[in-house]
Design a protein around this nucleic acid. Structure first.
Length: 274
DNA sequence: CACACAACCTGTCAGC
DNA sequence: TGCTGACAGGTTGTGT
């Protein structure tokens, strides 16, 4: 469930062992993930020093020496696992493995293979088709109720769908949209363009709070999510509505409901969210 | 253009 | 125990 907090947790874990190090070995064990890997993928990365690890939306950006950026998306099931020493137990879904001059190895494992990787010149990063058009970072000060109001103006999509739209705001996924709408008391089926500014004044801080708490907790451990150091995240114990169909609302004790919107489960409290 | 929905791929779990 | 269907964190492409 890599949403922003899980991607950020992964980025931080990787940064500890990669920044400043040289990638001495890399193997792509198949030619494609969701899309084909770029030409000379492994060859282009091998031997370069890692300058910095950054994140934009749900993408991890590894800046390599020589003005090259390695773009990584974890998709639905992608994970990065770090270990000391080259792995000797490589699994069927361990698609990319790379190691540093200090002997750390990172395995990109992705059963469903919805993940993606690409390489782009640093000077062309912002224009890359995966990143162009992505909305504001929700944790930036520039993401305000006023900005969100403008982005939602005239939208007839329900709030649930609007917040999942990465061009409206970056990094939210199914879980944190549900959680943020609950915290702000906004019904997920409310049409985005009709939500009152006063509600958005509650929603923006709610988004920032739920993401900040989740990052602080090290991401969520829903299903099999593992941080880069192998520790399970533990934010899932704090979900208030997600995956809690039929349970009592933490605020009013009414039953949490589950509906399907644009093909995905939405959880909400029909009494607290209007 | 905006929006809804299917598709991509594999694993897991509930129910029979 | 084995089979089937529903469902899972995301994004893109197609159709209306």
């Amino acid at each position: 469930m890599p949403e922003l907090p899980e991607v950020e947790t992964t980025r931080r874990g990787l940064a500890l062992k990669l920044e400043g190090r040289r990638i001495t070995r890399i193997e792509a064990r198949r030619p494609d993930l969701r899309f084909p890997l770029p030409k000379n993928f492994a060859k282009s990365i091998q031997g370069r020093r890692v300058e910095a690890l950054e994140r934009r939306a749900k993408y991890i950006l590894i800046r390599l020496e020589g003005d090259l950026v390695w773009i990584i998306h974890l998709g639905m099931s992608g994970r990065m696992v770090m270990r000391q020493g080259w792995p000797n137990d490589i699994g069927a879904h361990d698609h990319v493995i790379f190691g540093t001059d200090e002997g750390w190895a990172v395995t990109f494992n992705d059963a469903r293979r919805f993940g993606m990787m690409d390489l782009v010149a640093g000077s062309k990063l912002a224009a890359h088709k995966l990143l162009a058009g992505i909305g504001p970072e929700p944790l930036d000060d520039a993401f305000t109720a006023k900005v969100l109001l403008e982005a939602l103006k005239g939208k007839k999509a329900p709030m649930k769908a609007a917040l999942l739209d990465q061009t409206v705001v970056a990094g939210l996924g199914n879980i944190y949209v549900c959680e943020a709408l609950f915290r702000a008391g906004i019904h997920p089926e409310k049409l985005a363009g009709q939500v009152k500014p006063a509600k958005l004044e509650l929603l923006v801080p709610a988004i920032k709070a739920v993401l900040t708490e989740a990052v602080k907790a090290g991401g969520s451990s829903l299903r099999d999510y593992v941080q880069s150091d192998g520790e399970l995240g533990y934010f899932q114990t704090r979900f208030r509505v997600y995956d809690r169909e039929g349970e009592a609302c933490v605020t009013c004790k009414a039953g949490v409901r589950r509906i399907v919107q644009s093909g995905r489960s939405t959880f909400y409290c029909g009494r607290c969210q209007k």
